[in-house]
Design a protein around this nucleic acid. Structure first.
Lengths: 303, 303
DNA sequence: CTTACTGCTGCATTCAATGCATCGCTTTGC
DNA sequence: GCAAAGCGATGCATTGAATGCAGCAGTAAG
């Protein structure tokens, strides 16, 4: 699909930082590339690149142009996926930006289920924090984002939200394991492990602690959910997770999870999003629908 | 802006119905054009055109492609208008599809006011009935549509709605002219002139008549609002208009308008629309904002 | 059966895009 | 300070991909 995305060399130059370097990676001479840039600037009547002593940098107009090119690329992908769809091939590619909690169980199962039906569809799964996920949507490097408690949601269209109760994770023999629902006051008697502050679960807990008289003994802090989920097996410590990041009934080898009372820590929301005003390629749209269905079912299981 | 819209020849061929005719209008040989088509079909792996004995016709894939090309053209226009905007030129073009009522007074005044500020912006104003206006949005031949009581509104995004009371139009000496508000029962004593059935005003009146005991003596029927507005000057006949299609206090030379009681004929809605999920070019977006403001003011005047 | 119109293809041509060499400029390193 | 290195821009020769020409095969209309 060569000339379906013209001007894509502009992106290469912007990334490389100089015309000569970009010409190298494009395997053409700098002359040719330079000429294309000049011709393009002539057409628009505006400089696309700012000439610096050590290379070039996009002007404001150039940034608009790059945005346009990316949007166009995504449109072409959509078109190709539509055409492939009516060829009966069900091809395509889906890029997903998501929070950590989705990676260990939920997305692998979902993607495997989807690919079982549509084997020609390929996937890209990228761990992005809440801000980076929105950025990924904006520059078309992701089709959909699945994030817990996102930040601002500007330029983002919410396809669906799913409430997520915070669960306490502990070893099976832990005293609190006998209770059905955990109160925050109970937990304050034990050391806890928390995610670092950028994460949604931590935000919810921090907010809860402000309003509450309880204080937590934070013995462990980590930015890795996998670590936080496994650690209580070795210690009396309690950590917190949302259900989407937990394995099913089996596979909890020696550990148990108990919901935290919603009066203490309110439910957070898991957001399924896409870029505002964008029509997704067929594959991505269908996958989003499947995600929505599965998440609604998943919800029922844990309630 | 030549090669910013590649593939645009596909549209030309589709419209011409044959490669050779299209080649004529494009001022190139049929050979070259044919080659491009073959190359394109090779890239997509799907025939774009169906070969008929007397020419070609778009396949399903081809129709998708044409839709994509139109969308792309509109995107490029948006980009250029954005770039022109930051050049301080405020250039651009706005295409408007609208009902008859907007043409005599409202749009001329609005466009003139806009062009006073942005002289480099050009306009296209096209009379389209309610169904055709939506079609015009869909194929990107119009940026915004202003229609009274539209039909289905699929694939259309409503930017704003404005209630429009139906007004009775009569000569100044008419007996009913002494009343402040007209009841449908009063009108039934006189002959009336109505727009033909596709128009929103007629729809409202027809609906009103079904529910009401009153019957109207339809002496004149026309699809031209200009005619219906002027005719009562020569006759005791009464016609109906919405305020947006009427001149201000002056310029009614010998005629008066009186609102029809909303209990008899409910208010209709004037819709300001754009294509769903489309980002308008700067000029069109700004003009839409101006329209919205003016219409809100206009509303105050007549209430 | 002829005529006219269609899309398609082999071969020669041409012109726009490319490559080469070089200039003018700024920053970097000694 | 002065040479070196890296950058974008430009004049000139070259090349190859897109074009044009002529002719093919097929179908519908008269």
């Amino acid at each position: 699909m060569p000339e379906l995305i013209p001007l894509s060399y502009v992106e290469t130059i912007a990334k490389a930082g100089s015309i000569r370097k970009a010409a190298d990676t494009l395997a053409i001479t700098s002359t040719a590339l330079n000429r294309r840039v000049l011709a393009l600037e002539d057409e628009f009547g505006v400089p696309i690149f700012e000439r610096l002593p050590r290379g070039v940098r996009l002007t404001t107009a150039g940034e608009l142009l790059v945005q346009h090119i990316r949007s166009q690329r995504s449109d072409v992908a959509k078109l190709q996926s539509q055409i492939a769809d009516l060829k009966g091939e069900r091809r395509g590619h889906v890029s997903i930006a998501c929070s950590q909690a989705l990676l260990p169980y939920f997305l692998p199962a979902e993607i495997a289920a989807y690919r079982k039906q549509h084997t020609a569809v390929t996937f890209g799964v990228y761990l992005r924090d809440r801000a980076a996920a929105e950025q990924a949507l904006a520059d078309f490097s992701a089709d959909v984002a699945l994030v817990f408690e996102p930040v601002r949601l500007s330029n983002v269209q919410v396809l669906a939200t799913f409430p997520q109760t915070v669960y306490a994770v502990m070893r099976a023999g832990h005293p609190l394991a006998r209770r059905g629902v955990i109160r925050l006051g109970d937990v304050s008697q034990y050391p806890v492990g928390l995610p670092t502050s950028p994460y949604g679960v931590r935000q919810l807990i921090d907010h809860a602690l402000v309003r509450s008289s309880a204080r937590l003994d934070v013995a462990i802090e980590s930015d890795n959910f996998q670590f936080l989920r496994r650690y209580p097996a070795e210690d009396d410590l309690i950590t917190f997770q949302i259900p989407i990041g937990l394995p099913g009934q089996d596979g909890m080898d020696g550990m148990v999870v108990r919901p935290v009372d919603a009066r203490d820590i309110p439910q957070g929301l898991l957001y399924l999003c896409q870029l505002k005003n964008r029509t997704l390629p067929v594959a991505a749209a269908k996958f989003a629908v499947q995600l929505e269905r599965s998440l609604v079912e998943q919800l029922g299981e844990f309630e």
